[in-house]
Amino acid sequence: MLVINYSMLGGVYFASLVNFATASLLTLVFMFGIWVVQGMIGNKMLQLYPSHRQALKRVVVFTSINLTLVAMLITFLCWLYGNFHLLGFEFTFTSWLRCLIASAIITIVNQAIYETESSFRRIRVSQLEAEQLKKEQLQTQFDSLKEQVNPHFLFNSLNSLSSLIATDPEKAEEFVEEMSRVYRYLLRSNEEQLTTLQREIEFVSSYNLLLKTRFGEGFRPEVSVAEPFRDCLLPPMTLQLLIENAVKHNIVDPDMPLTVRVFTEEGKLIVSNNLQKKNKTVISNKVGLSNIIAKYRLLNYPDIEVSETADEFRVVLPLIKNKD
């Protein structure tokens, strides 16, 4: 506004407070109308050319319309000032052209600022939408992984119960009681993304009793977790899946006992078992270990470490600090 008035009136614009206020007020009234119209046109341009690929076309069309509107406004202002001899202004081609060039430069600069700000705003909105979509996709995948655990665990539990009913009805009754405790935890934890290590340990204690009932001295669990780490977090069912994985792929027999150790070392949780693979290939749907790896990745936590030697299979799990 100041530049337009100065290009039109020169030093007269700043000669007195009356001149400055009069010219500024007149120009402001007309410029406000132009700003409103420009805003409406800008929104329409975004609707017509929303894609980034159409940005150049949108800028060219919008700038052309803006320059036309501003040229019309400047022409009218020059005519108004000259026709009524306002502030000593005379409408000549030179004065009109000078005002037109000044207003065109201002319009192009304003257009560039508007397009830059608008582009950053659209990019930010796109990023937020992409992040939200990614979060929803990860949540869907995570829920899908959790749903795979229930039928898998139930299938193995019912197989164990079926074997016990035929061989030892009393142990079968004890097995059902322990299985009910396990499923109470399972149903509760299925709605959570993380649980405390203490709760996991309590849960696998019941789960280990189920395995001890089935395998006797063939299965030897050892849990030794330092107290300060028991409040740390990890995905629910992690320990159960690792223990189940060890039992599934190794010989479990009193003559060849399977020892599964759960302990902490250097701030990490370690689950290991002695390696004595079954001779017969075990059919696996890969829900166990791959499920745990996927959970940590979906939650954006450090990957777990898996290693195998001739005598031992080991999984190192990062413990998540409990902020509460």
Rank of each mutant, 00 (worst) to 15 (best):
Q132S: 11
I105G: 11
N274G: 11
M237N: 13
K280I: 15
G10S: 08
L48F: 07
L56H: 01
S224N: 11
K280Q: 10
D255R: 05
W96P: 06
N274M: 00
G11A: 15
L128V: 13
L9S: 10
Q38S: 05
S103E: 14
S7W: 00
R53Y: 04
S205P: 03
G33Q: 03
D255Y: 02
N300T: 13
Q141V: 00
I123W: 05
Q193V: 03
E312C: 12
R188V: 09
H52S: 15
L9A: 09
L275K: 04
S103F: 12
Q47N: 14
V316I: 05
F142R: 04
L298D: 03
R220V: 15
P236M: 02
F142Y: 09
T92Q: 05
N291S: 14
G216I: 04
T264R: 04
M8I: 15
L56G: 11
R261H: 07
M72K: 00
C78T: 09
F215A: 03
L154H: 14
W96F: 08
L158V: 08
F313N: 04
R58W: 04
T309M: 07
L317E: 03
R181K: 14
S64E: 08
K321R: 13
I74L: 06
A102F: 10
E312V: 13
L317M: 10
N190D: 09
T116N: 07
Q38M: 00
F203D: 05
N250D: 11
T92C: 07
A21C: 10
F175P: 04
E129P: 06
T63Y: 08
R230H: 00
D168T: 04
V61C: 01
A102P: 02
V70F: 05
L9C: 10
P236W: 02
L234H: 04
I65A: 14
S163M: 06
F93Y: 12
T68F: 15
M256P: 01
E266P: 02
V247K: 06
N66W: 04
I65P: 11
L25P: 07
L233T: 05
F20I: 06
I4E: 14
P254R: 11
I283L: 14
M1K: 13
G10P: 05
N19V: 08
F30E: 11
L275P: 00
Y81E: 15
P50K: 07
P169I: 10
T22W: 13
D255G: 01
G82T: 05
N291D: 08
E222W: 02
F93W: 12
Y301E: 07
N19W: 08
M45K: 02
L234A: 07
A310F: 02
G288S: 12
E170A: 14
L211D: 00
E117G: 06
E191V: 09
R122D: 07
N273G: 07
L73W: 03
V316W: 08
T195D: 12
P235F: 02
F32V: 15
E178M: 14
I41V: 13
S189W: 12
V252T: 01
F155Q: 09
F120W: 09
Q240Y: 08
D143P: 05
V176N: 06
S119P: 00
N190E: 09
K212P: 01
P221R: 02
Q54F: 03
F155P: 12
T94K: 10
K323Q: 13
I320K: 02
N273A: 08
V262Y: 02
I41Q: 06
K321G: 10
S224L: 12
E177L: 06
T195Y: 03
S224M: 05
I106K: 09
D324L: 15
